[in-house]
Write a protein that binds this DNA or RNA. Structure first.
Lengths: 338, 338
DNA sequence: TAATATCGTGCAAGCGGTTTCGTAAAAAGG
DNA sequence: CCTTTTTACGAAACCGCTTGCACGATATTA
């Protein structure tokens, strides 16, 4: 393995000069730079990260924190897509992607300690955003920098994040249903401590108010096979509901299963979020909101990479979403037209 | 941040001694070891990984390689579970978990190059096993060590791997169906280049031969919404089939969807693999084979950690599986009994 | 033309550990 | 009790790269 000194010798310069070329230090003449670069290529030189990190005491590694396993959350394929997006930009920037996962917050903290201790990693991406997250405190106290995927629950002005406009998405979906002739639309969530769900609900609420409709919502935070009874009660109480929005495809799918067993007099329209595989295996396939996870991952990675590079960079970035129409929404206006 | 030298000074020994204590070098007296350890604790000392890595030129990092995104593969929640298992043991061993993902093999190679170059990472876990995998060649030529999750397609005697006994699992499932009174059992796969699928098929085949039954199999490697026609043709050709085994829950679920639209005269029994969330959202819920992904991840991580530690350690490890009974298999013997 | 500023490069001291080698002290042997 | 072996530890040379500072060579100014 060729070292920096070998390159220096071949290029007939000092190691310092080679180092400066490596780091794109501008004081180097084009001529000597070329000479050094030629030598590097010739020797097939690759800088040694550990040496570099030791000298600069920074690790060129991004930590990615997955949410502590709250059962279902983990089954969500979403995270793998995000990882793919992140890895794409990190490897473009010669950075490593290290992951931290865990069953519990304690596990997670242990895993993250591993990363922060020994001044290894100091930049993190959190793949979720939750209210009262102890991980956030832990990161702050380790004075690590981090970027959230999802809108922060608080202090949104001084924490960096990347997110969809979930409020808008919630409102878009609602409007979409209204356009399809629905006047009584329910909203289903399973965990309001997740900021996403709260935002989508907020959007729904706004749209509903704007359209002068009634608002119906139901929290289904029981295990998957126990959502039947509360759902039935909800529908019995509001028989006028013709469409429902679920905060997640999986939830929508579970609801769809329950509805199938209820033999409702008319089809219930259903919309999910994330346009995941669950939307495609539903029956009928679910209309859903695509949030482009790979793009999200790329955006969040770019943000953490450039963090504190430029002084007044925006501290957040909103990525687009798109309603993907499938068969789970019936168009009530067609009936009217006839 | 306290350094090794600080510890040495406080403990009144040389840096070398402290280093030896750190590395559990046995030549140190218990007395001085205690003294050093006390000093470490007192100073809250944490060794600097970069310095350590530089001196020893090894990175204390495990690379985890996810399969190049072949659409569906990526949607599989399985990988996140595996990651969790892996991360559990790596962080227990003071190791970092770095992931490599990519859309294509080229992407993946780029990502892995990042890791191997600059002598950073030299131990890898592959979360899949495929025939003719170029990644394997690449790793070999970078003389990196690796462990496979899944049985190697070739050279199984000198590559380390962790796997379920998929042949046995395939045969178990078949026997299970036979015990439930099924005599004509079909086998559905979507990609035989994946070693898992081949193995499960092999097990099915063996059991079928042993029971003196006919063998039926169908490859469904078209996109999800195009599996209808071949499936229909298959069933028309073999109307006697009463049960089918799919190599994966997702495939089983997709088949279930198609079957629902076929209005078959009798219920078709269906069994999947992996006991994933897909099995639970199916309707009826799928009987499936649990393969304990977290345990798999832990096992594979332990193996790579201990690699070449002991000389004659076994080069593979088989983790258990378990049939999870749900509602997708009808018991034909009950009818007989009556 | 001398004095001063500017610029490109080299020197050498780290960064925080590991490890070879040497040596003083302790243990073993005669 | 003295020699030989063993043992526990220290001195110092790295590992490969960065960077503050010094310095000679130009370019600028008077």
């Amino acid at each position: 393995m060729a070292t920096l000194k070998d390159v220096a010798k071949l290029a007939q310069v000092s190691p310092a000069t080679v180092s400066r070329v490596l780091n794109k230090n501008s004081v180097i003449t084009a001529k000597t730079r070329h000479r050094v670069e030629k030598a590097m290529k010739q020797l097939n030189y690759v800088p040694n990260t550990n040496a570099r990190n030791l000298a600069t005491s920074n690790a060129r590694t991004i930590g990615v924190i997955l949410p502590a396993s709250q059962q279902m959350v983990y089954s969500n394929p979403f995270f793998v897509e995000l990882l793919r997006g992140i890895n794409h930009v990190t490897s473009d920037n010669d950075l490593l992607t290290a992951v931290a996962t865990g069953e519990s917050v304690t596990d997670l903290v242990r895993s993250i300690t591993m990363m922060t201790a020994q001044n290894k990693i100091e930049k993190f991406i959190l793949l979720y955003s939750q209210k009262n997250d102890p991980i956030l405190d832990f990161l702050a106290q380790s004075n690590a920098k981090y970027v959230l995927l999802g809108k922060p629950a608080k202090d949104s002005w001084n924490v960096c994040y990347v997110d969809n406009d979930n409020i808008l998405a919630g409102s878009d979906v609602t409007s979409y249903l209204v356009k399809k002739g629905h006047r009584h639309i329910g909203f289903l969530y399973d965990d309001f401590s997740q900021v996403v769900q709260g935002d989508r609900y907020l959007g729904y609420q706004r749209a509903v108010i704007q359209e002068g409709l009634n608002e119906y919502h139901l929290g289904l935070n029981e295990p998957a096979d126990a959502i039947g009874p509360p759902l039935r009660a909800f529908l019995k109480q509001h028989p006028q509901i013709t469409a429902m929005i679920a905060t997640d495809d999986l939830l929508a799918l579970q609801v769809q299963r329950q509805l199938a067993q209820l033999h409702l007099p008319q089809a219930m329209s259903l919309v999910g979020f994330n346009n995941s595989i669950f939307a495609k295996v539903a029956q009928p396939q679910l209309t859903s909101v695509e949030v482009f996870p790979v793009a999200l991952g790329e955006a969040v990675a770019k943000m953490i990479v450039n963090l504190s590079q430029q002084q007044n960079a925006p501290n957040n970035m909103i990525t687009p979403h798109q309603i993907i129409e499938r068969d789970s929404v019936v168009d009530l206006t067609i009936g009217e037209a006839n």
